[in-house]
Every structure is written in C-alpha cells, then in structure tokens.
C-alpha cells in the first residue's frame, strides 16, 4: 500500500509539473508581450509567472523525492542529481534530471537578478525553452502513463500552448516591439580612439 502511494505521487506530481511548467513558459511569453486586459491587469501576468514557477519547484521536488524513495523504482539520489546517471531508462530520465537542474539555475538567477548583468540573466532565462522541451520528452519517455489517452491529451495541450505562444512571439512580437530604436542609435553613435 505504501509503495503504491509513492508511485501514484510520483506520477501525479510529474503530470502536475508538466502542466505547471508549460503554463509558466506561456506566462513568461505573455509577460514579455505585456499581456493585460481590463479585468486582467498587466502586473498579474509576471506575478503569476513567478508564483507558479515557485509552486512548480515544490511539485517537482515531490516528484523527485517520491521517485527516489520508492523502493520499487531502484532509483537513487544519483539518478536525481547526475543527468543520465541512472540505469533505468537512462536517456529519458536523464532529460528530466537535466531539465530540473536548468530550472534551478533559472530560478536561482532570477532571485539574484539585481546583482547579475542584464545579459547573463537573460541568457540563462532563455534556457527555459530547451528545459521545457526536455521536460516534455522526459514525461513521454519515462512516464508510465505515457500511453494513456488522458496523458497524451495533456501533453498535446501543453505542447500546443507553448509552441503556439513561442511561434507568436517569434513571428509577430519579435525585435523592437515598442519601436524605441535602440539598436539603430547604437549603430550611429560610435566614435573612435585615435
């Protein structure tokens, strides 16, 4: 009975993590796009993005801890910490580990953002995209429910949401959306040492 609980907890938390992560990525894109309506003030978008990402950390932690403490999985701490360090479904599980560690880096850099350069923070934050792809691959590759209809439906929704938002950002909301023209000025204002 005990092991079943852990097993269900791992799978449940895993599924929640995927949904939360996908939502967080979409909210991140919407934040950049300054999304807001009359009933959804703009400050809500990045605030929700931040809060849900912290919630996701908690859920992912439950997912990982239940997975490695479950005696039936034979997964040790190594599997949770070293990417591709487990013997069980090495590749797909490893993607999950890698994804989780990248997520920690993204969150850690966001917490110390005032002390990082704008470029450093942005570069690490952009790893959210490959991080998400790895998380999706992990859940489809290792997930025991992967073949179930409802899991597939959830995966499709998550993928559709994130790819749709990303495509929109790249194609329609790219470059200099506000029209400030900073890049143009930087090209015109150079001097030279003599």
């Amino acid at each position: 009975m005990n092991d079943q609980v852990l097993w269900y907890a791992t799978r449940g938390a895993g599924m929640m993590s995927l949904i939360l992560l996908s939502t967080v990525v979409v909210l991140g894109i919407l934040s950049h796009a300054r999304f807001g309506t009359r009933s959804w003030p703009r400050f809500v978008t990045p605030a929700l993005h931040r809060n849900l990402s912290l919630l996701a950390v908690v859920i992912v932690t439950i997912h990982v801890v239940t997975a490695i403490t479950d005696p039936f999985t034979h997964l040790g701490v190594v599997a949770a910490v070293v990417p591709f360090g487990s013997y069980y479904r090495t590749f797909w599980l490893g993607l999950g580990t890698l994804s989780g560690e990248l997520a920690l880096a993204v969150i850690a850099t966001s917490l110390v953002r005032p002390w990082l350069g704008r470029f450093t923070w942005k570069a690490i934050h952009f790893s959210s995209y490959p991080l998400w792809i790895m998380a999706v691959a992990h859940s489809l590759g290792t997930g025991s429910d992967a073949s179930a209809m409802w899991m597939e439906a959830i995966a499709v929704l998550c993928v559709a949401g994130v790819t749709g938002a990303t495509a929109w950002r790249v194609l329609i909301f790219a470059g200099d959306p506000v029209g400030l023209g900073r890049g143009q000025a930087r090209r015109n204002f150079g001097g030279t040492a003599q």
Partner: peptide, 12 residues
C-alpha cells in the same frame, strides 16, 4: 594623453 574622436551627433 590620448585623443578620442567624437561622433558628429548633437548629444555627443
């Protein structure tokens, strides 16, 4: 001592 060329802009 060094010389630096200023670009030809109002705000330079």
């Amino acid at each position: 001592v060094s010389i630096v060329r200023a670009p030809h802009r109002f705000i330079a």
